[in-house]
Design a binder for these strands. Structure first.
Lengths: 160, 160
DNA sequence: ATCATTGCAAACGTTTTGCATTACA
DNA sequence: TGTAATGCAAAACGTTTGCAATGAT
């Protein structure tokens, strides 16, 4: 391994919690609307997965974690569908793909502009509000290009 | 695919160029010293791969690209050794691992502190001198942590 | 001579795909 | 009903590992 990366990056998994089939929960209509608003048909799996993703607030997840949590909460999906759905959600703007070093994909449930702390040696990422970082000087883009935005990763080390 | 990522990120491959066995070239002793200075035994493969990596100036490569270039320039290595060697080089500080979105590892031959442009849709990264970006305000690290540094990625889009 | 390094092939974990089935609109 | 989405298993990648052979000091 090039680096130890925890299954879920920014928090420990909280104790298992039994839950009704999410699709039947009262939040479902809201989720369905959110999906429609992003051009996605609100199928059972998409609603369920969106619910799983949102159930714990902002976080950084891998496909496997989402799959595990889905099963754990009684949602029936295949791993392939989780992968495909995360990809669709990302294309639709419901998720953002995180740039991390290593060979595994991570997704950020928070899609508004923000930055990150990165804890070295643990691979954990922590959200950083936009206001906590400010860039003073932005470089000139190469000819024919325009600047879309910038991402800052502040690297941390645990004090001895 | 989540995103098209070119085999080599920051430049197109230049036309194939026949070359002597690198280990026999006059640069070898220098490379060997560099390896020793970083605590690595200068084996033939390590010298050869270091030469391949440095042959084109600073760049962002994947294991596969390094492997291809090695074969193309007459260097005999196995893909497994390329992977292992890139990992060792990274640990030894001869390379830096790049944080990119996606499921593949990329390495930066430039190890001094610098930032990057990232061209959306092409996955290309372009080096940015440290002076071209300046951060005005750095956030307070969480308790028990200290800030080691920060990386900035300026995202670009090709103008229409 | 000794011990690190290598090569190879096989194992592994992650992600994608093909195709028959299901379910939304 | 027509079409998009799903499940599954299998394939396709990217990466690592085990072990015997090789090479550096």
């Amino acid at each position: 391994m090039f680096e130890e990366v925890p299954a879920e990056m920014s928090e420990m998994r909280s104790p298992t919690r039994r839950r009704e089939r999410v699709a039947a929960a009262p939040v479902a209509p809201v989720l369905a609307d959110r999906l429609r608003a992003h051009g996605l048909r609100p199928t059972r799996q998409r609603v369920d997965l969106l619910h799983v993703l949102q159930a714990k607030g902002d976080r950084h997840v891998s496909a496997e974690v989402v799959y595990d949590e889905a099963l754990r909460s009684g949602v029936s999906v295949s791993l392939a569908t989780v992968y495909n759905t995360l990809k669709q959600f990302t294309e639709a703007g419901l998720l953002a793909e995180l740039a991390v070093s290593g060979a595994k994909s991570f997704f950020d449930t928070r899609v508004d502009r923000h930055h990150h702390f990165y804890v070295e040696g643990e691979g954990a990422m922590i959200d950083l509000d936009l206001d906590d970082v400010r860039i003073e000087r932005l470089p000139e883009p190469p000819a024919g290009m325009e600047v879309v935005g910038y991402d800052v990763v502040v690297r941390l080390r645990r004090k001895a």
